[in-house]
Computed example of a mutant assay.
Amino acid sequence: MDTINHSTVVTLKELIAYAEGAVVSKTLTKNKSGNTTLFAFDKGQGLSEHTAPFDAIAQIVDGQCKITIGGVDFKLEEGQMILMPATIPHALEAIEPFKMMLIMIKDTTND
């Protein structure tokens, strides 16, 4: 399932809009190897601490956020990315409205 067309140039910032007091998400690609999701967080919104069974890359495409990984805070802004390792608790908070592309990478070696 893809929600973007193959061989088409897109601007990530323009694929998703902010919604007041909310988190908006849009799946860009999804298959057995992982998925790519675009998120837009209004200021003060976030994701509470959780773990994931797979590594995830958060690529900030607009604004600023705080990402906490294993109890350590990181401030990220447009153009920066961070790897959130599998099974390590992490959380996200919008310092200001921000957009990010989240790439989940599944280990399919045992499939």
Rank of each mutant, 00 (worst) to 15 (best):
D107G: 01
H90Y: 06
K13F: 03
Y18A: 05
A52Q: 02
K32V: 04
L38R: 08
K106Y: 00
P85C: 13
G46R: 07
Q59E: 10
G71M: 06
T36C: 07
E49M: 00
P53V: 02
E20Y: 07
K66C: 09
L38A: 07
V72E: 11
V61N: 07
G70Y: 07
A94C: 09
A56Y: 01
D42E: 04
K66A: 10
T87N: 15
I4H: 01
L47N: 09
F41C: 10
F74E: 11
E78Y: 02
I16F: 00
N35Q: 10
V72P: 04
A19K: 15
L92A: 12
E96P: 04
A40H: 03
S33H: 13
K32Y: 01
T36P: 03
E78T: 12
M84G: 08
P89R: 04
H90I: 08
M84Y: 06
H50V: 09
M1E: 10
I82R: 04
D107S: 04
N5Q: 15
A52Y: 01
T51K: 08
T8A: 02
M101R: 11
N110E: 15
I60R: 01
N35L: 06
L38P: 09
V23E: 07
I57F: 00
T27R: 10
P97R: 12
D73H: 06
G63M: 05
M100Q: 13
D2S: 15
I105F: 03
D73M: 06
A91H: 05
Y18N: 07
I67H: 02
G63T: 08
L28Y: 00
H6A: 15
N31K: 02
I95W: 08
S25Q: 01
P85N: 14
T109R: 14
T37S: 10
I103A: 08
T27V: 14
G21F: 02
S7Q: 13
V9A: 15
L38D: 04
A86R: 08
E14H: 06
